[in-house]
Design a protein around this nucleic acid. Structure first.
Lengths: 136, 136
DNA sequence: TTGAATGCAAACCGTTTGCAAACTT
DNA sequence: AAGTTTGCAAACGGTTTGCATTCAA
């Protein structure tokens, strides 16, 4: 139940936050949503929640560590529910489907490259773009 | 001389285009510039070129294959002069310095991952963020 | 001379913010 | 009852566009 997840991260339990969290839990596995998409899903379920609230709630969720924000090609932010482990993404440029992966070899190489160039890494982002099985 | 590069890609030779191309050639190796930065450099050299023109020219350069556009963390676009070969980037989060690299092992792994997940890759982006030698 | 390129200001779009009203505790 | 959270509309920042003027060929 979303109630506990919200309380656990110190957020007051409100209807908008519960609904948005519920949607993130339902949809994250298939695709990552932007604020507009969350807004439309809410509308289609007859929940009249303002777009500004969605941005605010998602930003709070991000600060609380419940979701991460990504900037895919094109620019606007998409959000994904956190499941704890680091991973990278493959994004379908046609339908928006997202697959996740981790690869130790790639991680190692990144660290080696950073070291060789003298950088102290703080973060990295790796996105693969293409057509998913259904779309090609 | 910038004149030929412009003619070669089918662009009329104008002062804004020459100046902007010249700046890209001077600056690309050290850092990748956004439109605002190009604008300020032009101003500092007493060239009064409108920001809208800079966006238009950079977009034309991109279409002509002269430059690439990237979306680094934070969101706004930065441009880099193309030198023909594919490469990825390490970006200093403090000073904006950019280093480039390519790594065949990473490229291979990316292709294998895409294949395993059934994607037909069209593109990818890999950015490492950190502190460069001077900034850490 | 003629069509393309520029400058300016206004439009745009995703996102954020100020404020009064509606909620959670 | 006290303090948050929400909705609305207005503001914002980077980028694009319409239109009259200026320019390259």
């Amino acid at each position: 139940m979303e109630t506990h997840e919200l309380r656990d991260v110190g957020l007051k339990v409100t209807l908008p936050r519960m609904k948005i969290l519920e949607i993130m839990e339902r949809e994250t596995n298939e695709r990552h949503l932007n604020a507009e998409q969350v807004y439309k899903i809410l509308l289609s379920e007859n929940e009249e929640i303002g777009l500004a609230t969605i941005y605010r709630v998602l930003t709070q969720f991000e600060a609380a560590g419940l979701v991460s924000r990504h900037h895919f090609e094109g620019g606007n932010s998409v959000f994904e529910l956190n499941k704890g482990h680091h991973h990278d993404h493959v994004v379908c440029v046609k339908c928006g489907k997202v697959d996740e992966f981790t690869d130790d070899i790639i991680e190692d190489r990144q660290n080696q490259i950073a070291q060789k160039l003298g950088y102290e890494l703080t973060d990295h982002s790796l996105y693969l773009y293409g057509l998913c099985p259904k779309c090609k």
